[in-house]
């Protein structure tokens, strides 16, 4: 009876792992195919049968993307914009979140409600008025403009996430500091921020990814090829007569690998950030 139950448990575990592995296979195959194609010479990208392991792998597409197609420049652009966005967004949203989490002031509910509206409206729906705004502010075709709009667009979510984290910091700690005569700025800088490093990392990663991957806004406002970010550059690799798929996927791999690495390293913060919103809703 006992052995029967144990073998059954093992059988169930086996089925579990089998189903999960099939699923994982389907999740991974496209990436493998992408990587394989990036290593093929251009003439073989649509060969039949398609090969997941190329016969004569070549790194020509990578050197081509990096050298003759200014990919280094686009990479730096994306990196610069993403880092600046992350910095400003984390800074501004942590201050807002602190205000919402710890102070009572007139208009608090209304302002927070407005923030929630911002959380609900997908950014893409505002692209027309934002375009006109950027034009009036002289922020078209500028990387600073990208940072400005990306930061503004990430504030609502970041503030929302950080607020719920700040609320969990025991009030007693702050009250102790108040007794010692610390003002709000000191409490924010010396207590709240250091205690919230994991949460700050979480929203930082979100902001970084959102900016790194953003496509539509950059495509619409950037004209100068020297200011292109990675997603636009990749999408513009499609030729008029034929798409150089090997080049497209070499470029894609260059764009994706840092993100995947960052994700694997910061996985814990990532997941906690995702679930904060869900489990507290």
């Amino acid at each position: 009876m006992v052995t029967g139950s144990a073998s059954r448990t093992r059988a169930i575990l086996g089925v579990r792992i089998l189903i999960l592995s099939v699923g994982v296979f389907l999740m991974i195959v496209p990436f493998a195919y992408m990587f394989a194609t990036s290593l093929k010479p251009n003439a073989l990208v649509l060969e039949i049968p398609p090969k997941l392991i190329p016969h004569h792998p070549t790194t020509a597409n990578y050197t081509d993307a990096w050298t003759s197609n200014k990919f280094g420049r686009y990479f730096l652009n994306s990196l610069g914009v993403a880092i600046a966005t992350t910095f400003f967004s984390v800074w501004l949203s942590s201050m807002m979140a602190y205000a919402f989490a710890r102070f009572s002031f007139p208009g608090r509910r209304i302002l927070f409600g407005l923030l929630l509206i911002g959380l609900m409206v997908p950014t893409m729906m505002l692209i027309i008025p934002q375009f006109i705004l950027a034009k009036n502010l002289g922020m078209l075709d500028s990387l600073t403009g990208l940072v400005f709009f990306y930061t503004g667009g990430t504030l609502a979510l970041n503030t929302f996430l950080l607020r719920s984290f700040f609320q969990d910091i025991p009030r007693e700690l702050e009250e102790a500091m108040v007794v010692d005569g610390a003002g709000p700025w000191k409490r924010y800088l010396k207590l709240v921020l250091p205690l919230s490093r994991p949460a700050l990392a979480t929203v930082g990663i979100f902001s970084f990814l959102a900016s790194w991957d953003e496509f539509v806004w950059a495509l619409t406002v950037i004209n100068d090829p020297n200011k292109r970010t990675l997603p636009i550059a990749i999408s513009l690799f499609q030729g008029e007569h034929s798409t150089s798929w090997g080049l497209v996927f070499a470029a894609s791999t260059i764009a994706v690998v840092p993100v995947l690495l960052a994700f694997v390293i910061f996985q814990r913060q990532f997941v906690s950030g995702l679930t904060t919103g869900a489990l507290k809703a």
Binding site: S93, M96, A99
Partner: peptide, 24 residues
């Protein structure tokens, strides 16, 4: 306290209002 709260809020919220609320 109220003043401090608004100071914390202002820079971010102004940007948010300009880039998100006003466009709505």
């Amino acid at each position: 306290e109220t003043l401090a709260a608004y100071t914390f809020l202002a820079p971010g919220f102004v940007l948010f209002a300009l880039v998100v609320l006003y466009p709505i």
